[in-house]
Design a binder for these strands. Sequence first.
DNA 1: GTCTAAACGAGACGGTACGTCTAGTCTTTCT
DNA 2: AGAAAGACTAGACGTACCGTCTCGTTTAGAC
Lengths: 199, 199, 199, 199
Amino acid sequence: MTAKPPNPQRRSQRSHDAILAAALDLCTEEGYGHLTIEGIAARAGVSKKTIYRWWPSKGAVVLEALHEAADVAVPHVDTGDLATDMRTQLTAVITFLSPPSHAPLAGVIADALRDPELAGPVHDRLIRPRIEEFEQRMRRAQEQGQLHPDADLDVALDLFYGPLYHRLVFHLGFPEPPYLDKLIAHVIRALTPEKSTRN
Amino acid sequence: MTAKPPNPQRRSQRSHDAILAAALDLCTEEGYGHLTIEGIAARAGVSKKTIYRWWPSKGAVVLEALHEAADVAVPHVDTGDLATDMRTQLTAVITFLSPPSHAPLAGVIADALRDPELAGPVHDRLIRPRIEEFEQRMRRAQEQGQLHPDADLDVALDLFYGPLYHRLVFHLGFPEPPYLDKLIAHVIRALTPEKSTRN
Amino acid sequence: MTAKPPNPQRRSQRSHDAILAAALDLCTEEGYGHLTIEGIAARAGVSKKTIYRWWPSKGAVVLEALHEAADVAVPHVDTGDLATDMRTQLTAVITFLSPPSHAPLAGVIADALRDPELAGPVHDRLIRPRIEEFEQRMRRAQEQGQLHPDADLDVALDLFYGPLYHRLVFHLGFPEPPYLDKLIAHVIRALTPEKSTRN
Amino acid sequence: MTAKPPNPQRRSQRSHDAILAAALDLCTEEGYGHLTIEGIAARAGVSKKTIYRWWPSKGAVVLEALHEAADVAVPHVDTGDLATDMRTQLTAVITFLSPPSHAPLAGVIADALRDPELAGPVHDRLIRPRIEEFEQRMRRAQEQGQLHPDADLDVALDLFYGPLYHRLVFHLGFPEPPYLDKLIAHVIRALTPEKSTRN
DNA sequence: GTCTAAACGAGACGGTACGTCTAGTCTTTCT
DNA sequence: AGAAAGACTAGACGTACCGTCTCGTTTAGAC
């Protein structure tokens, strides 16, 4: 028999908020690697037990904190120009992945690479929604004639975002704006079937 | 005064090899997350001190083990057809990043995301050489007319490998062969300037 | 800021008792020199942290175990005959300092010789109470006319117990009963001022 | 087959002397408890192997160093007055057992309490010769009529030196000169049979 | 005066235990 | 019942020495 789950209705909002705030603060101050459940509990003025009652790991705490922050931090805009909007969006993501704010997300990514229990929630709560926003933006671009109607959106996702994470995991440095523009142009061209060939 | 470094000439080859082998074995068996210096020492029949004498962290041990394995595992071939060869190469990388062999590399990547001391060596010893092999292959493709002479090799790297790591870090699953071919075709087209425009 | 001390009210009696028992057992079985904190923790089924939380060293653990045992092991009796009672008491002390039970006390004495942090508690908790019991017995002997009223109790302590420890530290062997009686007789005579001389 | 012993004729006098000097220096500076074979080797500019070749333990090293020093430090003198000479001698011993010079002897005593391998040499090389010097002095006192011819020299040893070691092991502080005189007087009286009684 | 075997310095090695740290669980007390 | 406080078991951390074991390098007795 596994322990019965706590009753969410009796949950303390104060503790919940203090824990997420403490986690983000400590993560930024000391780095994800030095973040501990004990440290979060102490900073939040909360019992360790309370954290373990509601989250299975420190990664899950930070994930939830990120989840709350992500919507406002990296939204997709629509000015009517796809290349411009993707540059805006990718720049926002790069900022999120670069010092000084990179610690929480990079840390959760790192933990999820080794902890399948964390990988699931990361995908479902953090990534899936972002991918759907991306695909909505792409479909709007197709409707507006900024992107070919036959463009494969999976490929688009791979080519637009792939470079960022390749560079993240191998510490290759993120693209400077001019190179970013070039990259975006290449990707958009890749997504546009050649006019002259085949049929 | 920092402790003086040990004399590499007196290093025991037996211990060195046993440590790397034990690290890889345990990593595969139990997962990188359960890998410990104590466990490596015990499995290798070696003193913990000997590991700490030569490596600063468990990540550094696994990195060196990977380094020795990488050349043979993911070589670039040249059959004369770029798309085919890239599929071969990317498939090898995907195999390296997928179960059951993914643990060591994924683990080192995860650790390097949080430990700058590890990130440097990962870049220098593991990634840089692979990038150079890749660029050599690309240049040969340019000489053979398989790739446009003006193609930007940095963009090529980003577009060929980016998708793999984006999918790795967010657990999106690796591309199946048909999709991989499609992706490669898109990338090669992206690297080929349109005939009709500009120059 | 030094670490704040733990709250003694919440201390686990079970762990406390198991630790002292394990320490004494191991000390007797393997010898004080082979006694380790790790060994005590393992035998007592206790975390090392718990030992370090309440005692500063293995010597302190054994000291407390001895402290609990000492009252019952080496009491002063009063049959009305001082020489007889001292022989009883000294014999008990000799037993305590001889194999097979000598390890804990000899070990603590040895550690205290090199560790001032341990020497204080040894004196306060182990020796001081024994000295007071001894002095009470001496004063009763004076009241009963078994010992001269002017006898110096510090000298008495030195002469009664000194020989034991001189012999202990230099491994000279403890006195056999006949010699012990002789020694006690000498000491009692030394404490009795000569009737005929001086004044 | 146990390792064949080294050839004493080829022993390096330089190393031998440097080791004993380093041992005493470090013992005085840092305390016997912080003395290590590694530390002695480093200070003496000598290989650890060289120490282990000639001594079985750090206690044995310090013992030999003490042995060389003891003859000059605590000699028995003969001015013709036993009480005076014993005060001189006991005062010298007290000095040897008190800070700042107490560390080596106290340390060796402590180690010998737990290491039978060390206890033997301590007794044979350090103590036995001192006891013999003491007994010679006592016999001379008997010849000179300063001590009763029937006085038991074993009792004399116990009563003269016992108090020092009782006080040493329990950190009771050593006697001040006035008390020391009193103690000596008591002991000499104890050794002198009463004229009027029994025999 | 070589020659050569032993002692030497240096220090890497397999180990053991240290004392610290954090994880995750459990208990007590308060609200 | 949930939460704060914090003691508990468990076990890895990185360090310090242990005593053993090569390495080359003196060095001293035998040739």
